[in-house]
Computed example of a mutant assay.
Amino acid sequence: MKLVKLEFRVGGVEDFNLNLTLKPSFVSSLYTKSGDSWIKVSGLLAGDLVVTYVDGVLTVYSKACGDGDLLREVALCETGLWDEPPRARISKLKGKLREQVEALSQLYPGVRLSISPHDFNCIFIAVVLSKRTRYDVFVKRWVGELWRRWMCDLEVLAKLSISDLKPVGSSYQLQDMLEALRDFVNLDVDLTDVAEARRRLMACRGVGPKVADATLLFTTKSPWIVPCDTHLKRVSKRLGWVNGDVRMPSKQLCLRYYCDECMSKYGECLKVAIERLFPGFGGWVQTLTYLFGSSTCRAQRPLCERCHPTLAEYCVEARRRPLSSRRRSKDFV
Rank of each mutant, 00 (worst) to 15 (best):
R199K: 15
L201P: 13
E275I: 03
Q286T: 11
F218R: 11
P227C: 10
H308M: 03
E268K: 13
W241F: 15
S250K: 12
V211K: 07
R200W: 02
L217Q: 08
F292Y: 14
P209G: 04
T230E: 05
T219L: 08
A195R: 13
M263F: 04
G280T: 06
V211G: 05
A203M: 14
R198K: 12
K233P: 00
D245S: 15
W224V: 02
L217F: 12
R306P: 00
A214S: 11
G240I: 03
G208Q: 07
W224H: 15
A214L: 13
G208F: 08
R321Y: 01
F218Y: 15
T230N: 05
V242Q: 04
L255I: 10
L239D: 00
E268N: 14
L232S: 01
M263K: 14
C297M: 00
R238F: 00
W284R: 10
Y314I: 02
Y266V: 01
K251Y: 09
R276W: 05
E317R: 10
C304M: 09
R256H: 08
H231E: 01
M263A: 09
P302L: 04
S236K: 08
G283H: 11
W224Y: 14
D260E: 15
H308C: 07
F292R: 00
L255V: 06
M248S: 14
S295L: 12
R199W: 03
G267K: 08
L255S: 05
K271A: 13
P227Y: 06
G293T: 08
L303V: 12
L232Y: 02
D213W: 07
A312K: 13
C204T: 09
R198T: 06
C269T: 01
W284Q: 02
K221V: 14
S294A: 14
F292K: 01
L253G: 02
L239W: 06
E317W: 10
D245R: 14
L303Y: 09
S222T: 15
P227K: 13
L201C: 12
R276E: 06
R247C: 01
R276V: 04
Q286M: 05
G240N: 04
V235D: 07
G267D: 08
C315Y: 00
V194E: 03
